[in-house]
Write a protein that binds this DNA or RNA. Structure first.
Length: 239
DNA sequence: GTCTGTATTTTGGAGAGGTC
DNA sequence: GACCTCTCCAAAATACAGAC
């Protein structure tokens, strides 16, 4: 999968293992039947409700980490829903934003040569503090898997932590600094993004307040596949 | 520089405790 | 008893501090 003149796609460091989702339970666990018929328990690195993407019987891909210190050797990475691969690993977007920043995935973030992770700010921690020729900016990253039609939505449940992040970013803007929120849309079938008003009305209200305050919203689309992840650019914000 | 331990992050369920 | 609020816990990755 090459990407022409566009940004370099991310490739998984080792081949993923295909299977079928049998059940998901206790937030962190998933029963998966591998292609060879073996039944395994995989770690589910997404503690949210996974609205619309947790479909029993759907094809999934797992990464394999046979380190002795791990209890579960397999990690659930993606699931195929309506013919589209959806990334479910919530830790991946932060790592890939870090990775993509070095490779020019985000033209909106050009001019930031240095970055510091997990910076304490206000009531919570912000994922990145970017500094460089472009000045400085705070960047928070959110993983998005829920979609209705071609519209990606976040959050898919009440998130007080997410609300705190929005309040902190608004405060950062009020202090005259740049503040950005990058919604990592972990599926290729969405061209629009909107706050999940139905699930968290307060978050949706804060989202609009943040927009008005000048917080820069970047709903970033990626194409997820068993070989890697390819950047697709920004989705249209609908409020 | 390497190793070890601790804190933090994600969300929803379970259980405890308080109030009516 | 019913309801509400609060705290703890689950697995794993990651960052960071401290010891050697």
């Amino acid at each position: 999968m090459e990407c022409g003149d566009g940004p370099v796609p991310y490739r998984f460091s080792s081949p993923l293992h295909r299977g079928v989702l049998r059940s998901r339970y206790k937030r962190f666990l998933a029963d998966v039947e591998l292609e060879n018929g073996q039944q395994i328990i995989a770690h589910c690195p997404n503690t949210g409700p996974m609205s619309g993407v947790c479909q029993v019987g759907a094809p999934v891909y797992l990464s394999h980490h046979p380190e002795p210190k791990r209890k579960l050797a397999y990690t659930w990475e993606m699931i195929q829903v309506d013919g589209v691969w959806v990334g479910i690993n919530t830790s991946l977007p932060n790592r890939l934003v870090d990775w993509g920043l070095e490779r020019g995935w985000f033209p909106q973030l050009a001019g930031f040569s240095r970055r510091q992770r997990e910076v304490t700010c206000g009531k919570s921690k912000i994922d990145f503090l970017l500094t460089g020729d472009a000045g400085s900016a705070y960047l928070e990253v959110k993983n998005t898997t829920w979609a209705v039609g071609s519209r990606a939505l976040f959050p898919d449940t009440v998130t007080t932590r997410g609300q705190k992040h929005l309040e902190d970013l608004i405060q950062i803007r009020q202090q005259g600094q740049r503040a950005l929120l990058l919604y990592w849309i972990n599926r290729a079938d969405c061209t629009e993004f909107a706050p999940g008003e139905e699930r968290d009305p307060r978050y949706a209200r804060l989202f609009r307040e943040a927009l008005q305050a000048g917080v820069e919203m970047l709903p970033y689309r990626v194409e997820v596949s068993p070989t890697g992840i390819r950047p697709l650019g920004l989705a249209k914000i609908v409020v």
